[in-house]
Design a protein around this nucleic acid. Sequence first.
RNA 1: GCUCGAGUGGCGGAAUUGGUAGACGCGCUGGAUUCAAAAUCCAGUUCUUUCGGGAGUGUGGGUUCGAUUCCCACCUCGAGUACCA
Length: 964
Amino acid sequence: MKYNFNEIEAKWQKYWSKNQTFKANNNSDKPKYYVLDMFPYPSGAGLHVGHPLGYIASDIYARYKRHKGFNVLHPMGYDSFGLPAEQYAIQTGQHPAITTETNIKRYREQLDKIGFSFDWSREVRTSNPEYYKWTQWIFIQLFNSWYNNDTDKAENIETLISKFEAEGNSAVNAVHDETVATFSAEEWKNFTSEEKQEILLKYRLTYLAETEVNWCPALGTVLANDEIVNGVSERGGHPVVRKKMKQWSMRISAYAERLLQGLEKVDWPEPLKEIQRNWIGKSVGASVDFNVLSNDDVTSSARLPEYFGQAVEKSQSISVFTTRPDTIFGVSFMTLAPEHELVSKITTPEQKEAVETYIEATAKRSERERMADVKTISGVFTGAYAEHPFTKEPVPIWIGDYVLAGYGTGAVMAVPCGDQRDYDFAKHFGIDIPNIFEGVDISEEAFADKENTVIANSDFLNGLGYKEATKKAIEKLEEIGQGKGKINYRLRDAVFSRQRYWGEPFPVYYVNGLPQMIDAKHLPIELPEVEKYLPTETGEPPLGNATEWAWDSVNNKVVSNDLCHAEPVEASQNGIYPLELNTMPGWAGSSWYFNRYMDAGNTEEFASQEALNYWQDVDLYIGGSEHATGHLLYARFWQKFLFDQGLLPVDEFAKKLINQGMILGTSAFVYRLENENTFVSKNQIGDKKVLPIHADVSFVNTSEELDMEAFKNWRPEFKDAKFITEEDGTFKVSREVEKMSKSKYNVVNPDEICENYGADTLRMYEMFLGPLEQAKPWNTAGITGVHGFLKKLWKLYFDDNGLKVTDSEPSAESLKSLHKTIKKVEEDIENFSFNTSVSTFMICVNELTAQKCTSKAILEPLAVLISPYAPHIAEELWSALGNSESIATAPFPAFEEKYLVESMKTYPISFNGKMRFTLDLPMDMSKEDIEKVVMEHAKTQAQLEGRTPKKIIIVPGKIVNIVG
RNA sequence: GCUCGAGUGGCGGAAUUGGUAGACGCGCUGGAUUCAAAAUCCAGUUCUUUCGGGAGUGUGGGUUCGAUUCCCACCUCGAGUACCA
């Protein structure tokens, strides 16, 4: 009987689907295990062989856990809102929902062919109203919450209102906008409803605010920081500019510390944690207030240079953040970001022109230029002075674009002796560089080594190290009321509005310009139909094109815009108000989907408490590291928020995470003579002037030879191509490893592999390529090795006459081969080292074939061992051996040490650490006897050439090493 | 620049607490089978060699009886990050 993989695979895929073999139950006596893949965006291009790599690994693990007696949840779904479907809609007018549906269908077909053990009954799609109903619901919960720093968690906004009513806001320890004014309980009570709403917005965990955003004109939307790479959009590479817009934001900054601390308790790759740590960017230091010297100070002071202008009318103070309060006596100037709001207030008339010119010049430079150009030092003096908090000496105030408006307070106290940028700035402009370090030379560069710092010339800090000096400086600053210890985070609040159509609509309408939440019981608010997916003529988002997009707050339904007054101020007559025109960003739906899988069909809740308590969290999460600062950070944030609400049992959603490496393509290049339509084979190029051109990899065989006819028919411009071939008439291409992509014509499709070699071969070969986490090139040529192995496996069970498995007693050798394999494969799976278990299987099958093993006692457990990797063939063998149930939950074979016990050991005999020959000796031979046998051996004598060894190292059961 | 990660045959890669470097597979070479091909099977395949052996895991040094593995310095490649005060 032949190994007919196509037939076998189709048969079992049908069986699994019909019998719902992998449907997970929310009630079970078995321990739970949750294996999750990052769900895909269903793109129009379909899957290439790189995509399923992580899915195969997680599927092997899920299947293994079932054999190990776990109740396994292994779901799959689609992150189905997104830009490409919408761009396609703009070009063709086809509704994104239709495009998405088509793409999902194609994805599903491709996934099914690979034989994954997904529980499809739990499929989620983020663009499905039944799903995004709960995304909207979570948004409402965020809106109704504030972050209480005292309890260190999110609380309902009602508790904040009670506090305001009782004591105003001065004693409230909350995370909020910088711009909140203090008010008393009395004042709060007297505020109008609208004033109250505006104030509360500054505290809510999702809030509407005028924000400076990254606007991408080409995509017609704003982008989050993590969606921008090198100053251009991650998707499409379009330019991005800064623009002020009214946007929904997520107060993720409230969770900065917990997001940082939480990393300690999850088993995620260290580099990924490091990326998140950097993104959160915690710095510990102090905030220090410098008073700006005003006219009064000036007239009463003789200490100032003559050119000090009469500018500052009343006392101002500049707040700075520093990580080095210990160096405060080294301050010789201050620098403000050009955008700093005080700049215009303190600049003296004499310096006004210079300052304005400078600000104008910086504003012109794009963010990108400023980033790229780190060498040029620029800045200008404002003419104003601040007063040093301790020495009371005047400190000149400069502006410079090396200070960023968006970090800290946008101002720094410059300590040129301790910070290289301050040092360079001071050198460039001839500002003093006082040395406050003991025994350190600062004539060439600044001294930034905290560990070896000993402070000098610093009054009460003299002689102290970094730590003590920092502590003391903060104490003194607090004493004089000009500073305090402070922790700063780089993490910014996340903009949550997108000016797009294909995303979750906000459950929000506006009364007098103030946002109102739609009551949760009226969700979902479904996306309206629009005629065009482009922004409106007045520049509003695509939802501005909808004619049915107003909220009837009396009847609680979406109604025609005509019923809604254009001017919101007048709109209250009939209770019909305009709805939000933005939609949510791509990461909204993916921030909680792993919880939805636990109870995907629930129409009453996002998931029942029962299901959530049973499944708890993801035990193993596999996906790409590119989501480090996007999905993985936002999802952790929502998880913590929902945990604070008492809605989730755990505050980290994934215990263990693995980043699968990318599978790269092996591109093929042909070389065309310059200005001619003639192509030159690789070895005939010599010093000819040629241009490399990508050829489709499907035209190239395993010997790197191009199918010239296929190439000519590929594109019209190659129709009349001429070829300079090798001497044997073949045309050789050259190969290069690149990212697998359509544009490089190096894409390999998994369907074709399944068709030609089978899904089991594909699964094993993907694993065989190398370690899961590593990037590695795909090379279809190598697949025959794995395919041949499966055929060989088949032949252990079948010959021309059918099944050849017998009930004969297994040989000791065969038992040894089997148990060696059990041990290794089990260890490999636990360590996610799937590549090495493929080799182990090959060795085992090679050995059993050589042993002519036909024993069921060996071959039945072998089928179970291999079933996580090659489930179809395993099912077929399992059923051929007389089992009527699926192999999916058959117990994993138990390893028994006794079969591996050896009586003999092949000892490597080394001389000075180099193995020269081997010797078979009994395992239980004593050290003395080993030495005797080895020394008497003729080869030993030949090696020694008459010398007497200095030393003989014998490690019984391991090695013999003769020194001398 | 900084922070990680990695350098092993023609290629992908293996070597689990320091103990036989190159498992397994591809490719290549030779052979068997075949009218022929595919498929299958067998043998060989790190380099070098005077066929005894010798060298060898990016480079140089160190620790050790013994180092791909541990330590130091350097080189190369990849990823992340980029004026974060």
